[in-house]
């Protein structure tokens, strides 16, 4: 098959686009974190975030969070149009401070979990989840 230069460039750009499209972190994610922590520092241990490395489909991505002793965990998707995902508030009859759910990710981005621990300090974890533009999805 013969292509003009224009077509070759177009294919190249198209092929590049077909792979992962990264999103830049959203400034409003930082605002949401600041509102939750009051600007306090966050340790990098104390909360765990489980998320797949590559999402099967960005519309339904399973995640789980765990922060022993925490009173609340905030989850954000830094690259979504609005970063808020959920806030888990654990009550006196919570069996532990873990939760699983399924979320929507608009593109490859960091998912962030911030936990408010029992002693009032904060912890943060994040994972990069690749969200691909599918194939012949039908």
């Amino acid at each position: 098959m013969e292509f003009t230069r224009r077509e070759t460039l177009a294919i190249g750009a198209g092929a590049a686009l077909m792979t992962v499209l990264p999103f830049r972190a959203n400034a409003s994610a930082d605002d949401a974190i600041a509102a939750f922590t009051g600007g306090a520092a966050m340790a990098d241990t104390g909360v765990e975030l489980g998320a797949p490395e590559i999402a099967e489909n960005g519309n339904t991505v399973p995640i789980d969070v765990s922060a022993p002793g925490a009173s609340a965990i905030l989850v954000l998707a830094a690259g979504n149009p609005t970063p808020g995902v959920a806030t888990f508030n654990f009550g006196p009859l919570a069996g532990d401070q873990t939760a699983s759910t399924r979320i929507r990710l608009a593109g490859t981005q960091d998912v962030i979990a911030v936990a408010k621990l029992a002693d009032g300090t904060f912890a943060r974890a994040s994972k990069t989840v690749k969200v691909t533009i599918g194939g012949c999805g039908g």
Binding site: V85, F88, F90, G91, P92, L93, A99, R104
Partner: peptide, 15 residues
């Protein structure tokens, strides 16, 4: 009558 969990959901929670 006692709270187990109280979750605030945002639009990023899946259908």
């Amino acid at each position: 009558g006692q709270s187990v969990i109280d979750i605030t959901l945002e639009p990023a929670i899946s259908t």
